[in-house]
Design a protein around this nucleic acid. Structure first.
Lengths: 349, 349
DNA sequence: ATGAAAGCGCTAACAC
DNA sequence: GTGTTAGCGCTTTCAT
């Protein structure tokens, strides 16, 4: 890495000015063929690689998009066997966020944008979200991955799109998934097909998707003349919490007809917890998830869940972003993308 | 995105110099508490986000790594049913490269680096690999994803590490996987446990991993007094090629005892092709793969394969890279990482 | 068609 | 502790 050659080096070597070197790369047609050859030859020989930093600085944009995600979503949480022997450690893969990310990657590729990945906590202090924001023309982030204040700050500089949640931070755009109507479908299935009446909700109230999903469920239960579902604590990232919840339920012999979980990860944790508590799903209690991750189709029993159009979410975000960057305007919240009720064995079907 | 505030704006607003603003962020302890508060307040109010481009330019590095991969590996190739209903389209996921990428991502996160993703063809012309190379402190690339000449050029500027292949381009480092000894294991299994004698190899000779794997197999066959295996054309990215190959074999009634495929994707394609030709594995012919992707564990029959430590490959690359960036030195080719023989049903077990 | 020169936003000496 | 200033490497008028 001795000396990174610059335009100056190339210019000198080729016996032209730096402007010509620049043009040779940017607008080859504006340079005489002869000169062009000389310059390109020098560049190749010297091993010239243009600095995207300098270019970005000069042009005011970088042709790169940023994707910011939770760090805890990406950490490895030890899990049960089905948790992919495919991996060196225990984390389930691919998770919800992984598939969305894939959509983002693919669409960036298609649109000719580079993608900068970053992740971190949602702590309000010097967060890395600003770090990635400073490098790109637009920032896509999972709802809740970064502190709203920070995002709002970033949004004054570049377009910001939040993924998969409801409600946007001011100045920010959102790709919506219709969690409410999705839950309606599930509730209808549980109520009508299975005739369950005693239904509880398991989830982490601090997660952004929680409220909407719970609301959707509650709505249908109430419409059916039932009480709002009890909410049991669970945390997709800390199985222990879920385990405690289930143990308590089992010890008090208070298992409901069905445990509707806020996410698939949560549901899988519930399935594990039930198993170790000596109970079975769906015989002793029905269990459902939300998201439609791969692991849910491999679990025993297979998970009844609401499958989100994950890749589409990612691709849509990038499409909105490029529109925004090109000066176009898009509604702050697009129509919510639809989820698909996917029936597995865990609901009793 | 009206006006992206800069250090100048913040400085003016806070009534200090730009140097103080810079210090406030870089070395808060070198600034009087009072001043610090003022500056930070102004920055927050103005929505100041430091430009990583400018910073990178000034400091000479970016704290970002680049990962460059095949575009065709990431495109969607329509596949058979098992090809993951989890997805919006037909591509298998996660593939070999996806899991390695995950390892890279995770390790970057751990080390505090941002990750820039890029992909493209291996065409020698204005390739995007240079584009991502220009933005980062180090470039990790899949063997064969970028043209060697280009890589060599890039390597004069920043450290370059190639993934998963043998042989490095000059000036480049490599994370090796020991494909040869892996193939030995498989060959021994096929030869000893199953007693197969008539073994053929299926793969794309233009792919970098091809040679090593074929060599490993050939070696053992020859040692066992057999002829070198015939090589049948297949291309992991174009099922049609594999289909043709299998059809021809079946029509001529020349199916060998076993078809050793260069990759899992190839093996899955072979399985499909056999099925549509009315033949079955492992009854009519044994089939094996290489890589250990998820889809191979979900296929029918499950695939006997050599599982690469994919996540470890990715993490190792990042570790080498940071060592290199910090001025350390590492051997051009580390010891090859070991693969694990994973027995499925496709070999007849 | 090519060159000269003025920034782009930030960091890092070096002064004060 | 804070301000001045000279770059970092490239793009881009504006001349020539």
């Amino acid at each position: 890495m001795a000396k990174r050659p610059t335009v100056y080096d190339v210019a000198e070597d080729a016996g032209v000015s730096i402007a010509t070197v620049s043009f040779a790369f940017a607008k080859p047609e504006k340079v005489r063929a002869e000169t062009l050859r000389t310059v390109l030859a020098s560049a190749a020989r010297l091993g010239y690689v243009p600095s995207a930093n300098a270019r970005g600085l000069a042009k005011g944009h970088t042709r790169a998009l940023g994707l910011y995600s939770f760090d805890y979503l990406r950490k490895n949480t030890p899990q049960e066997a089905l948790a992919s022997p495919d991996r060196d450690d225990g984390r389930l893969f691919p998770l919800y966020a992984d598939v969305i990310q894939r959509g983002v990657e693919l669409e960036c590729l298609d649109q000719g944008y580079a993608l900068m990945l970053g992740a971190g906590s949602s702590a309000p202090n010097r967060a890395p979200v600003v770090d990635v924001a400073g490098r790109v023309d637009g920032l896509i982030t999972f709802v809740g991955a970064a502190h709203p204040d920070l995002l709002q700050q970033v949004a004054r500089r570049i377009p910001v799109i939040q993924l998969g949640g409801e409600a946007a931070t001011a100045g920010t755009h959102t790709v919506l998934v219709d969690g409410t109507s999705a839950m309606h479908q599930l509730a209808d299935h549980l109520l009508t097909v299975h005739g369950y009446r005693d239904i509880a909700f398991v989830g982490d109230a601090s997660r952004p998707e929680f409220r909407q999903r719970l609301a959707g469920l509650t709505q249908r239960l109430v419409e059916a003349g039932l009480a709002a579902p009890p909410v049991l604590p669970g945390r997709p990232d800390i199985n222990e919490v879920t385990t405690q919840t289930i143990r308590r339920l089992v010890e008090c012999d208070e298992l409901p007809d069905a445990l509707v979980c806020s996410t698939d990860q949560e549901a899988l944790a519930v399935l594990d917890a039930l198993r170790s508590a000596g109970k079975r799903a769906p015989e002793d209690v029905a269990v459902t998830g939300f998201d439609g991750i791969l692991a849910g189709r491999l679990s025993e029993p297979t998970l009844t869940t609401l499958r989100q159009p994950m890749e589409t979410v990612g691709r849509t975000a990038v499409q909105l972003m490029t529109t925004l960057i090109d000066g176009g305007s898009v509604p702050e919240q697009g129509a919510g993308l639809e989820c698909t009720l996917t029936i597995g064995h865990s609901c009793g079907c």
